[in-house]
């Protein structure tokens, strides 16, 4: 705790994070990507406010209608408003993207940091486990789980997270192995800090840069994975929708009602682009080599 009377005289330093933030703001593509993501997320969250229709509200008389003033992006074969369904679908898609990535992040960072810091036999054991899971054919794994436990949103998170953490663990491990050689870690040992505190206070904060970048690149790949699983009919169940399941439906009626494929596809691509631009921007901003100029 800093006492008040002193604080005003201190010069405020700029941390590496603040430096990175300043660099990121100068990257126009990354800023646009970030804004776009925020807008998309807000739209999806505020779906009931933005749209007058419910996502399962059918108008069988109308059927599949072209985009119009009443239904901006048209309706599907049951007369459900496509714009509304895309927004509600975005909730699921974004949630899967975030939560599954978070799961991957927590497991991967902890696993990788422990393996990298411990080294030797523990490291070998932990990383061979990662290799084994890597070697499992992912789709069979997913199909099996879905068949055994039934289709379940929670299971979807776990399955996707349980696959994506592997790469995260490898990244963190190699980061930690490099950092471990630095003298400030030795200094922390010679101060008598416990292993857990060294990992928590000294290793992870310094390894986190590439992890954040990889995270922004994982979210799109997770969303794609969910879309793929839903496309196969193993993911989201109707009347709920995700971008993946909307695209899957759109493909069936591609020739008669192309907008049912085009708009969900466009939305997914737009979010993926935004995330990728943001990720690239973060990578450049957090790169230590660029921070020295």
């Amino acid at each position: 705790m800093m006492s008040r009377e002193f604080t005003q005289y201190y010069e405020q330093g700029t941390s590496l994070w603040q430096d990175a933030w300043i660099r990121l703001r100068k990257n126009r593509l990354a800023v646009i990507g970030g804004m776009l993501l925020i807008i998309i997320t807000l739209l999806c969250l505020l779906a009931p406010v933005v749209s007058p229709y419910g996502y399962e509200q059918q108008d069988l008389v109308l059927g599949a209608a072209k985009p119009s003033l009443h239904h901006w992006l048209g309706t599907d074969v049951f007369g459900r408003d496509l714009f509304t369904r895309i927004l509600y679908g975005g909730r699921i898609s974004l949630m899967v993207g975030m939560i599954a990535t978070l799961v991957a992040l927590i497991i991967g960072v902890t696993w990788g940091a422990i393996a990298g810091y411990a080294g030797g036999r523990i490291d070998a054991l932990m990383m061979r486990f990662v290799d084994i899971v890597y070697a499992l054919p992912f789709m069979i794994f997913v199909v099996l789980l879905m068949v055994v436990f039934g289709r379940n949103l929670l299971l979807l998170f776990i399955v996707i997270g349980g696959v994506e953490w592997l790469t995260m663990a490898r990244i963190v491990r190699s980061q930690v192995q490099g950092l471990k050689q630095l003298e400030f870690i030795e200094a922390a040992v010679s101060l008598g800090l416990s292993n857990w505190n060294i990992i928590r206070r000294h290793l992870i904060p310094n390894a986190i840069g590439p992890v954040i970048v990889y995270t922004t690149l994982t979210i799109p790949s997770v969303m794609l994975l969910e879309a793929f699983i839903s496309f196969l009919g193993l993911g989201i169940q109707p009347p709920q929708s995700s971008w993946g399941s909307l695209i899957a439906d759109g493909v069936d009626t591609m020739e008669e009602f192309p907008w049912l494929l085009i708009f969900p596809g466009l939305m997914l691509s737009l979010s993926l682009f935004a995330l990728n631009f943001l990720g690239d921007g973060l990578r450049d901003a957090l790169d230590v080599r660029t921070s020295k100029d």
Binding site: M2, G13, S15, L16, W17, L182, E183, F184, E186, A187, A188, S190, L191, G192, L193, R201, H202, P205, N206
Partner: peptide, 28 residues
């Protein structure tokens, strides 16, 4: 550990870049 300490060669590698002076000195 409290009674025996070490000063390292490379001042660029021996300080945690994510910690302020306050954090670095307060830790021990």
């Amino acid at each position: 550990r409290r009674r025996m300490q070490m000063i390292f060669q490379d001042p660029y590698a021996s300080l945690n870049p994510r910690m302020t002076i306050y954090d670095t000195l307060a830790e021990p």
